[in-house]
């Protein structure tokens, strides 16, 4: 049992948790941030992807204590209140989700993809970069379209910010 502190979606949080507590359980059970999901137990499906210190990680394969002191962002904190992040918007506009269960992880991975590779993403790149996110509903067709569109919109935002 240890007191773990970390920033989650811009807010300082803490909880007394067992050392074996996974980051995903810290978020879901301790902080009621249930947008981060668990779809497998072999670190494959990506439903649990969050950003730790700006990088996409599988929160089912990180202990909460390992993330102590980190800056964690989840799907709930991706955009401001009542606003949508361009990637969230793109998923809606392109029907990039059906049951919605893999969606938070997909969106967090997609944003990370653009952060790393920039806003111009080919279909082949998007498909390759989605290796760690499994969707059973969409056949990925509209997810790929969504990410391309979301990346473009993020690019515009970046350009605007630069100006």
């Amino acid at each position: 049992m240890a007191k773990v502190e970390m920033t989650v979606n811009g807010r300082m949080t803490s909880a007394n948790v067992e050392d074996r507590t996974l980051l995903v359980d810290y978020l879901r059970e301790e902080k009621n941030l249930t947008g981060t999901h668990v779809g497998c137990d072999t670190s494959q499906c990506g439903a649990c992807v969050v950003h730790v210190d700006g990088k996409a990680v599988k929160s089912c394969t990180v202990l909460a204590v390992q993330a102590a002191g980190s800056d964690v962002r989840t799907i709930e904190g991706l955009a401001g209140d009542d606003q949508l992040h361009p990637m969230q918007e793109a998923f809606r506009n392109n029907h990039g989700l059906q049951c919605g269960f893999c969606t938070p992880g997909m969106i967090m991975s997609a944003v990370d993809m653009v952060n790393r590779l920039g806003p111009k993403l080919s279909e082949a790149t998007i498909r390759a970069e989605l290796e760690g996110n499994i969707c059973r509903c969409t056949g990925y067709h509209n997810i790929v379209k969504s990410i391309a569109a979301g990346a473009k919109a993020m690019g515009k935002g970046m350009k605007k910010a630069a100006e």
Binding site: V49, V52, A56, V57, T61, V62, S109, D112, R116, E131
Partner: peptide, 9 residues
């Protein structure tokens, strides 16, 4: 190796 999220850890 693995996928992007795995490579980050």
């Amino acid at each position: 190796i693995g996928d992007p999220a795995v490579r980050n850890r």
